[in-house]
């Protein structure tokens, strides 16, 4: 071993003596050029050219690469091969980014909702929206019964199956319905708030309110400062849908049977 190492530089020197000076200069220039270009070529084209240190035996390149970048013939197929390899890895990276996108955004979106709540489809989200106003204003009492802040009860009943569904008929006009049909000008949440307001004032015999008993039912009327709806139905159409500023409520005990704007 020791003998061999001491002999190697001598052997190189002997070989160098045999090579013409022109060739030596050319080889040196190529080496210097390679020294500077190797890392840049690797970075630009994604190649894996070995460094001079690696070629000297200190580092091992991951892939066999041409030590002669100047030579186009072996470089071409390699670059094409590596380019396609690079593309595949880029696509995989893109795919992995795509795959992680919902994963990262979903928890973010879900973080605003109560934990454990599944992501909703548009249909269920709509159903949730419909329930939102219900729970924002009404307190669930169980068995599909709800209580308003003023103490009115909205329970199952009526032809529609629930009092809330029944009063929802007064959120839209029925222009062909015979007679008058009071239409509330607003959404269900606003309607529930207005009904509560009318109930509190009428029960407290506030100015302008009326109440009468009708065989177990109570009929309340309460005026509002502003328009709460308009007159619909055939009668409303005939009168050009006049604006209404009063609400009439029909109750059985605290159970709301119906409510609508009146003249």
């Amino acid at each position: 071993m020791a003998r061999r190492t001491s002999n190697d530089p001598q052997a190189i020197a002997n070989v160098l003596r045999l090579i013409p000076a022109k060739w030596l200069v050319g080889m040196l220039v190529a080496l210097v050029l390679y020294f500077f270009l190797q890392p840049k070529l690797n970075a630009w084209f994604g190649w894996n050219l070995p460094s001079i240190a690696a070629m000297a035996g200190n580092e091992t390149p991951a892939k066999p690469a041409s030590p002669k970048p100047a030579s186009p013939k072996p470089a071409q197929p390699k670059s094409a091969q590596q380019k396609s390899a690079q593309q595949t890895s880029a696509q995989a990276e893109l795919a992995s980014t795509k795959a992680t996108e919902p994963r990262t955004t979903e928890p973010k979106a879900a973080s605003t909702k109560p934990s454990g709540e599944p992501t909703k489809s548009p249909a269920t989200a709509k159903a949730q929206d419909q329930d939102d106003w219900k729970y924002r204003i009404l307190k669930p009492l169980g068995r599909d019964r709800y209580e308003s802040p003023a103490g009115l009860i909205y329970a199952p009943g009526s032809e529609e199956g629930h009092r809330l569904s029944h009063i929802a008929r007064h959120l839209e006009d029925q222009p062909d319905r015979p007679g008058s049909h009071g239409v509330f000008d607003g959404d269900m949440a606003a309607f529930l708030v207005a009904i509560d307001d009318a109930y509190k004032r009428a029960r407290g015999h506030a100015k302008g309110t009326k109440s009468r008993l009708e065989d177990g039912m109570t009929v309340y009327e309460a005026p509002f400062d502003q328009t709460v709806g308009y007159l619909g139905g055939t009668e409303g159409a005939r009168k050009k849908n006049p604006k209404l500023k009063k609400l009439r409520l029909v109750l059985r005990d605290r159970n709301l049977i119906t409510a609508f704007p009146i003249q």
């Binding site: 319905r177 015979p178 008058s180 049909h181 009708e214 009929v219 009439r248 029909v250 009146i262």
Partner: peptide, 16 residues
């Protein structure tokens, strides 16, 4: 067909 007697004397908005 919608068959009714008259508008309700109790609530005023319904159809009997």
């Amino acid at each position: 067909f919608l068959i009714y007697v008259k508008q309700c004397p109790v609530c005023g908005d319904g159809l009997c």
